[in-house]
Design a protein around this nucleic acid. Structure first.
Lengths: 343, 343
DNA sequence: ATTTGCATTGCAACCGATTGCATTAAATTT
DNA sequence: AAATTTAATGCAATCGGTTGCAATGCAAAT
């Protein structure tokens, strides 16, 4: 273990005060530019590196943003994280990432860790079964901005970045109806989460608006896992009045369901049209290709970080929360395009 | 912004010294157990939270592990990260994650950030075009352990976690040969990276061992992107002596290639058998399902963290580097199973 | 020549927890 | 009862930057 070079070492060698060294290295305006050059050259030469802790301790900020996501290993989330990382990195912030594994308990524990690590800001996409808000309240009390993304919680003091899930759900459903579907099933996740309740809402709006009937049997709440996809296919095959269209709130689940339906002999889209959500790579591999909703994960991550940093820098007042709605896009592919549409 | 509670506040109220408070909270053996109870109760009551920076500054350690990956948004990487996060979390460590986007330059800059953040240990999977080792050298000089995973660099002072790529490449190729393939193409990535050079080596070994001919035309170095998949399909269709099997070192690329080949009228596996690598979800969606090599991302992440922490805790001496080889598994599916094998 | 103003730099007190060493009180031994 | 351990706590220095305020020097203004 080598000894670290400190600003005191530099100061001693150059016979100036540590304060000047500190200011010079931080490009403080009161320092003569020649002195700055001299100091930074020496610092470089001596292999100096700033001690973040000493700095953080004194400045009371960490230059670190916390992120809590349900799962790291989903196509969408990794896109979000990639965007966050890129944007944070460009602004000189670090990212502290943890996953709740869809458990409220772990989310609370993660939040506590982030809190103790004194992150400057927190970004979270909440777990399936999160009910309370208490673990975020601490941050707000201390003036640490909290921003939700994708799975957001509506709170007057928290910003949010999401898509218009109601609209997306509405568009998907309208599309299915325009393709001739009259009995559409909707497979969704925990309705506590805005993403799922919103899409359901959009689904219901579209169904009603087109004069179709809402049928409780046609709304299936699952965990949207691949197993759930198989389960849904099985359930459909056992139904008396089978649906002619399905809207599944997750591509991986939708694809598994399609595979199972195909195995049971259903023709897609003729017997049953299918639409997913997320534009996961698998949607372009399944035959026929899966109609889905694209929404920009990478961009969502970038926007979230940018918004949070604006708050931190005071560009945006901290007590003004904003909700940013990103555009989503229905991508129509073979799984929902009935060739002969008869009205 | 509320005022933070410090050990001094607790000390003042209880009329004891801050030193005792500090020791009590850290469960120091020299402190009376009744005093401990008293102090921690008071700390809890006052909403005390330890200031990590003050502590880090004094203790000269951060409880943080750095991770540098080529890309966050790949199925494999997110599995690795999920594993790392879980294991680190359980051991009380935080994760600082950044991506190089396959650029050596960004990797170097990321390494510098990690270095300045004084991570206790570093885990890295190197970028496509990384040539130098210098940016890791700094860590080693300071006694910070560096561990490579998946895309590893062989260095006497660094540990590594990976699979046996030579063996995996050998198994894939032998399998294709056993299915009757006699002219096998291998599509791979930058050969500077062990994962690709290893698999190529295994490929070559298998080809030679079975008395087949090595043909330079049949080894294609690409970036393994989806575009590369299309490109390969095009190239095959233009070849005079076309291959009857392809081994592509990445599932997403392989799947795109398969799709393109199917569009061109090739029958898979009968005209051309295809094998990928990684067991990405798409491999089970493409028709026919893609034969591939599974290797445990989540587990790789867990093992990496555990190994690093063992080094840190001194369980494992820091100057003893180890290379852990995880088992990979060939998963045979339809894309490479020629029904009638004729010898 | 004296005053005023500005540009630089230094002093010294923080930030909050940790820890070697000293101290005190209580328990044990002789 | 005196001497010696042992247990428990306190003192004060330390980790390395940061920053309000004071001090210095020199040029411009009066």
């Amino acid at each position: 273990m080598e000894k670290e070079v400190t600003i005191y070492d530099i100061a001693k060698i150059l016979e100036i005060s540590p304060a000047t060294v500190s200011r010079a290295l931080n490009d403080h305006p009161a320092i003569n530019s020649k002195t700055k050059v001299l100091i930074s050259a020496k610092a470089m030469e001596m292999g100096y590196r700033s001690n973040t802790f000493a700095s953080n301790l004194r400045r009371r900020s960490t230059n670190t943003l916390g992120v809590i996501v349900p799962r790291l290993n989903s196509h969408f989330m990794s896109a979000v994280l990639a965007g966050m990382e890129q944007e944070a990195n460009e602004s000189g912030y670090n990212l502290l990432i943890s996953q709740s594994l869809e458990s409220a308990k772990k989310e609370i524990s993660n939040a506590k860790t982030m809190f103790n690590s004194r992150v400057d800001g927190l970004m979270a996409s909440v777990a399936y079964d999160t009910e309370t808000f208490e673990h975020f309240e601490n941050f707000i009390k201390k003036g640490v901005p909290v921003l939700f993304f994708d799975r957001i919680i509506d709170h007057p003091k928290c910003s949010g970045v999401a898509i218009d899930n109601v609209l997306a759900g509405y568009e998907v459903t309208s599309h299915l109806i325009s393709q001739g579907c009259r009995r559409i099933m909707h497979v969704t996740g925990n309705l506590k989460r805005n993403v799922y309740s919103g899409r359901l809402k959009g689904f219901q709006n579209a169904v009603l608006e087109h004069g179709l009937k809402l049928d409780d049997d046609l709304v299936v709440v699952t965990d949207l896992s691949q197993e759930a996809g198989k389960f849904v296919a099985q359930r459909i095959s056992e139904m008396e009045f089978q649906p002619d269209g399905i809207f599944i709130s997750n591509d991986l689940c939708a694809v598994t369901c399609m595979k199972a339906l195909k195995e049971k002999g259903y023709l897609i889209p003729d017997d049953i049209a299918v639409v997913g959500f997320n534009n996961d790579p698998v949607s372009q591999v399944i035959e026929p290709n899966l109609t889905t909703v694209y929404y920009p994960g990478q961009q969502m991550g970038e926007v979230a970080v940018r918004s949070l940093i604006n708050h931190l820098k005071g560009t945006q007042p901290i007590d003004v929360s904003e909700t940013i709605i990103l555009r989503s896009e229905l991508i129509i592919r073979g799984s929902s395009t009935k060739m002969a549409v008869s009205y």
